[in-house]
């Protein structure tokens, strides 16, 4: 099972995860008594990168309208800042005593903290982006709920005009999201559901048109036509609910990640 939720996050964090593992190994190897080198310059580079990341993070929080992001992201930023401070402390301690065990432990703790904090930060933003996609899906669901009250061609034309841009946006964003996911089953489910929605939508419009035509002729079959229309709207709604459900799934198990 993949550890990182999306390919973008994976590309950023996997190298860090590998380096933290390597650091732990180096620490274990160094327990035979090797001195740690002067880490002032590389630690300073980490601190500078963290300062810039935190700046961008704070600016993201400021400009976002997402209350959950505003609530969750500051903690991730504090985590990264605290981790950078640990690295600085470790570097100072190792300058005084290159064999210091507490300093080495601090170094590993700091590196781990950078990994965890950056991961939290990226996930926080990623979740915010997912919430935006879900809002768009819900807008389509709201339109589908209105389908059964459309009884004239004029209303149908307006319905199609309103629904089409939303549906196009959902299609584009869910498709992009499915390509980003690392979890194969989630990816396949999103693709399958999206294909169903794309297939069903013209059929639904057609069924709504047929209902309106039959209604105009005052035929008995209008009940059947309405049933058919409602069935198709219901099917589309089910697929969208499944898309929303899968979008909210996360890839990794907390314990496995740790």
């Amino acid at each position: 099972m993949p550890v990182f939720h999306t390919k973008t996050i994976e590309s950023i964090l996997e190298p860090v995860a590998q380096q933290v593992s390597r650091l732990v190994i180096l620490h274990e190897e160094a327990e035979d008594g090797n001195a740690m080198p002067d880490l002032e310059k590389p630690v300073l580079a980490v601190s500078r990168a963290v300062v810039n990341l935190v700046k961008v993070g704070r600016s993201t929080i400021e400009s976002s309208e997402d209350s959950l992001l505003k609530q969750d992201m500051p903690a991730a930023l504090l985590r990264v800042e605290a981790a950078a401070r640990l690295l600085e402390e470790a570097s100072s301690m190792l300058k005084v005593d290159p064999y210091s065990q507490p300093a080495r432990k601090k170094l590993i703790e700091g590196a781990r903290g950078i990994l965890q904090g950056t991961s939290s930060l990226l996930l926080c933003f990623d979740e915010s982006e997912v919430r935006k996609i879900i809002r768009e899906c819900k807008t389509v669901l709201d339109y589908l709920a209105v389908a059964e009250v459309i009884e004239t061609m004029e209303d149908l034309i307006q319905f199609v005009k309103d629904l089409s841009p939303c549906l196009t946006k959902v299609s584009r964003e869910v498709d992009h999201r499915s390509q980003e996911l690392t979890h194969q089953v989630h990816r396949e489910t999103l693709t399958r559901c999206l294909d169903s929605v794309k297939t069903l939508s013209p059929i639904l419009i057609c069924s709504m048109k047929i209902f309106i035509q039959i209604l105009r002729q005052h035929c008995r079959e209008s009940d059947e036509a309405a049933e058919n229309r409602n069935y198709l709207a219901g099917r589309m709604s089910d697929e969208l609910h499944e898309i929303i459900r899968v979008l909210q799934l996360t890839t990794y198990d907390e314990d496995e990640w740790d």
Binding site: V50, L115, T118
Partner: peptide, 29 residues
Amino acid sequence: DPPAWQDLATHSKKVSDSIKSLVGSIKDK
């Protein structure tokens, strides 16, 4: 929000690269 995401991803990558350099320094020396 591609620009915001791009910004965050770029700076996270820089942090990631700096950690790589740090561990690389330890290993080399």
